[in-house]
Design a protein around this nucleic acid. Structure first.
Length: 528
RNA sequence: GUCGCUAUCGUCUAGAGGCCUAGGACAGAGGACUUUCAAUCCUCCAACCGGGGUUCGAAUCCCCGUAGCGACGCCA
């Protein structure tokens, strides 16, 4: 069954994919998949001059990492190609000219203010920052194309938002002080470039977009865009606008706030999706978490597979109040934290900081839930980059051994990054023992003596297997009349350098007899 | 300045007039299990922004206030 639903995600290639963008993309994607419609990726690159291709690639990579696939887009083309605004300039010009010819738009130049609105000039004047001369100098010398705002006698402009319900704006807002003259607005700049609202509507009309799903911060744009749709409808059937434009259904998503209650921004918040990837989050967890920001299935399910989210998704289950993307910041970010950096060292710093902020967050918890569900081969392929990054020698171990090691730490790790860190003791012998552990474990309860005796037992052991080691350790502590912990803890400190490790017999087993004995000798020598 | 949107535990949320003594989850506290750390299980802590209506009955509907946020350019 085919559906006429066509939705789009239209990011600007800024050099990173924003977590807010991911949420917008996700909700569009969900709606398309739910209805059997098409999800379109369009690049809004009218203003960005540098590294356009690279920046577009970052968006594409980010969306792919998230598992959000599109049906039409810059990389795969489609019936409405091109999907770059920079390659559609002729369309904006054609539509603009047609609008002018039809008397719906006119070329004019603003006399003062250099293009800034009056309220902003007022504000700047109050702050003593206003310089008319500078503003004039910066202004485009050429006339711009203004759209004639046609109020059609309405006292208010209304549209029905699929999330927020009916939203109205007094028509007065679009009139000058006299209450008669409309506040016309620019659609083509003096340099011929389209203004955002204009390019957006022309593209949405051309691409037959049926539902515009975007952030809350676009609500105000909607009114201006409606004027553009209406003007384009007037010239429907001409070469410029062959098909009658239909005003799409608008669905405005609540904003995502930071802990300060402000819209998340690259200035102070970690917004680049790659940062979360680098922290060892699973894309499915990230997506699950973002889906829950402003939307809920209405039952008590929280951790749910994408298919279930698709199945349950609907506009009327999206709430209209903004949601906070909570991180447990204990320290301020080391640098402005957006993550649009190309400096690997700086990025590593941010990732470390973010990892700390993630601790105890719901996002991390969801990620842990997904981590534990991963099958062994799946787990291996996901952590592999993290293991390699830490420089572990993977080639010298059997795939089976590796699998066992990973499974051992799987439920002890909430992110892939943590897993790679936790598994360190199996790849590298401790170079020093944690002094606190030495104090608490080896220097108390005969720790050292027990360790040394246990070493002898282990050295004699013929079968080096999990069950055999489990028996050996338990048996030893029993014959000594000791608690298991009295024996296990010193061993643990010797093997890992700390008081934390997987069950001791498993650790011994995976380390192998030679390595285990070597580490015990090292510990004995260190403390003695 | 103008306009718009929003308001339930610290956070994410459930709640469509009686099922609300407001439910779940994360975090926090305590406990059980245990060989450390986890995982798991149990218990606890914790919210309807304020004021007026409407109604037999309001977290829910209406109005007013307050607060927060957002938007308003020849930025996107």
């Amino acid at each position: 069954m085919s559906s006429s639903v066509r939705v789009r995600f239209a990011p600007s290639p800024t050099g990173y994919l924003h977590v807010g963008g991911v949420r917008t993309a996700l909700f569009n994607w969900l709606y398309a998949r739910k209805t059997g419609g098409k999800f379109i990726l369009r690049i809004e690159d009218t203003d960005v001059q540098r590294n356009k291709e690279e920046a577009t690639q970052i968006i594409i990579d980010g969306l792919k990492w998230c598992g959000l696939n599109w049906d039409e887009g810059p990389d795969i083309g489609g019936p409405c190609a091109p999907y770059y605004q920079s390659q559609r300039m002729d369309r904006y010009k054609i539509v603009g000219d047609a609008l002018e010819k039809a008397g719906l738009a006119y070329w004019a130049k603003k006399e003062s203010g250099g293009g800034l609105p009056d309220w902003k000039i007022e504000k700047l004047k109050k702050q003593g920052k206003w310089d008319e001369e500078k503003a004039q100098a910066a202004a485009d010398p050429n006339p711009a194309l203004y759209l004639k705002v046609d109020l059609k006698g309405r006292t208010e402009i209304v549209f029905e938002d699929a999330v927020k319900g009916s939203i109205a704006k007094p028509a007065q807002t679009y009139q000058e002080e006299d209450g008669v003259t409309a506040k016309d607005f620019v659609i083509l700049r003096g340099n011929g470039m389209p203004v955002y609202n204009f390019a957006c509507v022309v593209d949405d009309v051309d691409m037959r977009i049926s539902h515009v799903i975007r952030g809350d911060d676009h609500v105000e744009n909607t009114f201006r865009q409606i004027f553009i749709y209406e003007a384009m409808a007037h010239i429907a059937g001409t070469d410029a606008v062959p098909l009658a434009p239909k005003i799409p259904v608008f669905a405005h998503l609540p904003m995502i706030f930071n802990e300060e209650g402000k819209k998340i921004s690259k200035r102070r918040d970690p917004v680049a999706i790659t940062l979360y990837e680098a922290c060892g989050l699973l894309p499915e967890a990230m997506i699950n978490f973002e889906a829950l920001l402003g939307w809920s299935p209405g039952n008590e399910h929280e951790v749910m597979p994408l298919e279930e989210i698709v199945r349950e998704f609907s506009f009327d289950r999206i709430k209209s109040a903004s949601a906070q993307f909570t991180l447990n910041r204990k320290t301020p970010p080391p640098v402005p934290a957006g993550g649009a950096t190309t400096d690997a060292k700086v990025e590593a710093q941010i990732v470390e900081w973010l990892s700390e902020c993630l601790k105890g967050s719901k996002l991390e918890w969801i990620n842990g839930e997904y981590m534990r569900k991963l099958s062994a081969p799946e787990l291996l392929s996901r952590v592999e980059p993290f293991l390699k990054k830490r420089g572990y020698d993977l080639a010298h171990h059997s795939p089976n051994w590796l699998k066992n090691v990973l499974q051992m730490e799987q439920e002890r790790s909430k992110t892939l990054k943590q897993l790679a860190e936790n598994v360190a003791l199996f790849f590298r012998a401790p170079t020093a023992l944690d002094p606190k552990a030495v104090e608490k474990v080896l220097k108390k309860n005969d720790g050292l003596a027990l360790l040394s005796e246990m070493r002898a037992v282990l050295a004699r052991l013929e079968e080096w297997s999990g069950p055999a080691l489990d028996f050996a350790v338990k048996n030893f502590s029993e014959t000594k009349g000791r608690k298991l912990g009295d024996v296990a803890q010193p061993l643990r400190v010797a093997l890992s350098g700390t008081t934390v490790s997987p069950p001791i017999h498993d650790t011994l087993h995976l380390l192998g007899q030679a390595e285990a004995l070597k580490r015990i000798d090292f510990a004995l020598a260190q403390v003695a």
